[in-house]
């Protein structure tokens, strides 16, 4: 029992939540939450970055940043520094 729960805890520690910024081109994932100030989060949600919504990473600008994400059939460009605060569902 002890062993098991220990494993569980270490699992949680070794697998940190993934960020939107980590998605590779063409990869899809569901958004879990936005760790951003309220006004910024609201703006992003209005653009489609809502918890529970699926997003796909698309092309990026030359140099890898900003990257375009496909949400609700639209394409929206975000910088890496913003995309790290968008946490994906495991």
């Amino acid at each position: 029992m002890l062993q098991l729960s220990f494993n569980k805890r270490s699992d949680r520690r070794t697998v940190p939540p993934r960020q939107l910024a980590e998605l590779q081109e063409g990869e899809r994932a569901v958004l879990e939450r936005l760790e951003l100030p309220e006004d910024v989060a609201r703006r992003l949600m209005e653009m489609g970055f809502v918890p529970g919504n699926t997003m796909t990473a698309a092309r990026s600008a030359p140099g890898g940043d900003p990257r375009v994400f496909r949400v609700d059939g639209s394409e929206i460009a975000l910088r890496h520094e913003t995309a790290v605060h968008l946490i994906l569902r495991p």
Binding site: L36, V40, R43, L44, M47, P66, V68, S74, E75, I76, A77, L78, R79, E81, T82
Partner: peptide, 9 residues
């Protein structure tokens, strides 16, 4: 401080 860049294509 930097403000986030969000742009629809």
């Amino acid at each position: 401080e930097r403000t986030p860049f969000v742009l629809e294509l």
